[in-house]
Structures are given as C-alpha cells and as structure tokens.
Computed example of a mutant assay.
Amino acid sequence: MGKLKVYYGWARIGNVRKKRALSVMFENEMLGCRSDRGQRCLRTLQDTVFERYQTDEEEKEGKRQNRIFTEYSLFLDEKPINGSLQRCLLINREADKNNVSKAMSERIFEALRKAFLFSNPGYKEPYSQLELKFE
C-alpha cells in the first residue's frame, strides 16, 4: 500500500467559509481521497500549494478516523496570528517540526508565502511588538 498525502494550501472563501485560513488536509484513506470525487472535494475546500507524504506516525493517526480527510486550519485574522502571514507560517512550521525535515519545512514555508502574496498583492505585514522566534 502506498503512502498517504498531506496537502498544504489556503482555504477557499465562499458561502461556507468566511475567514482567511491556512489549510492543512491529511488523507485518512487512499481510495476515497485520490478518486475524482475526493480530489474535487479537496479543490472546493482549498487552493493546494504543496503536497508531501505522511510519516508513519501521521498515517497511524489517520487510520483511526472515519472521514476521508482531516483538516487543520490556522485562521489569519484571529489570535494569536492577528493578520500576520509570517506568524501564521511560523506556527505551521513549529507544528510540523517533528514530521518534516528542515529543508522540506523551508520549501513548504516559501510555497505558502508565495501563493498567499500572489493572491493578495496589496498585503502588508501588520505592526506588532510581539516577536515569535521558533528554533
């Protein structure tokens, strides 16, 4: 059996979703997710920017779920992010640090940043006195 995937992207805003968010979708089973219907569902939920394969630990968690996808979102305009793209991407990088190599993490960070800036050309980082440093 092949490995399951993780899809990184930005949530599509529409009738159901009203807030900008970084969306991370985990496959829980391969047949439903990679079918035409599963991929169409994924495209309606997010604009996928980056894909990677899950680690064995992530795969074990997914097998216990009863849905074909599990989504984790970081909402851009809510606390602790408060509209900061940089802070949102750093929090996502910190959440992935146990499952992703440093090089892969950097590729995900850059792909998400470029996609967001492309779709939001007038974006400016909000002023904040709080500085997050994850090492």
Rank of each mutant, 00 (worst) to 15 (best):
G14I: 12
R52Y: 01
F118M: 11
V16W: 13
R20C: 08
D36Q: 13
Q54F: 05
G9I: 07
F75L: 08
E131N: 12
S105Q: 07
S73K: 11
E110L: 11
L112N: 15
Q129F: 12
R12A: 04
E78R: 06
V49D: 07
R40Y: 10
I68H: 05
D96I: 00
D77R: 01
V6A: 01
E59H: 09
P126K: 00
V16I: 13
R37N: 14
S119W: 02
A11P: 08
T70G: 09
D47G: 04
N15F: 13
R12V: 14
E57T: 15
T70C: 09
F26V: 04
N66Q: 03
A95W: 08
D77F: 09
Y8H: 14
L45N: 03
Q46L: 14
K60V: 09
A115I: 05
K133I: 15
K79F: 05
E131R: 14
N66E: 09
F75Q: 09
R20G: 02
A103Q: 15
I68R: 10
D36I: 03
G122I: 03
C88I: 08
P121E: 13
Q129C: 06
S119Q: 11
R20M: 11
L22P: 04
D47S: 12
N98Q: 13
Y127R: 09
P126E: 00
R34A: 05
F118D: 14
V49P: 00
I68N: 06
E29P: 05
S105V: 00
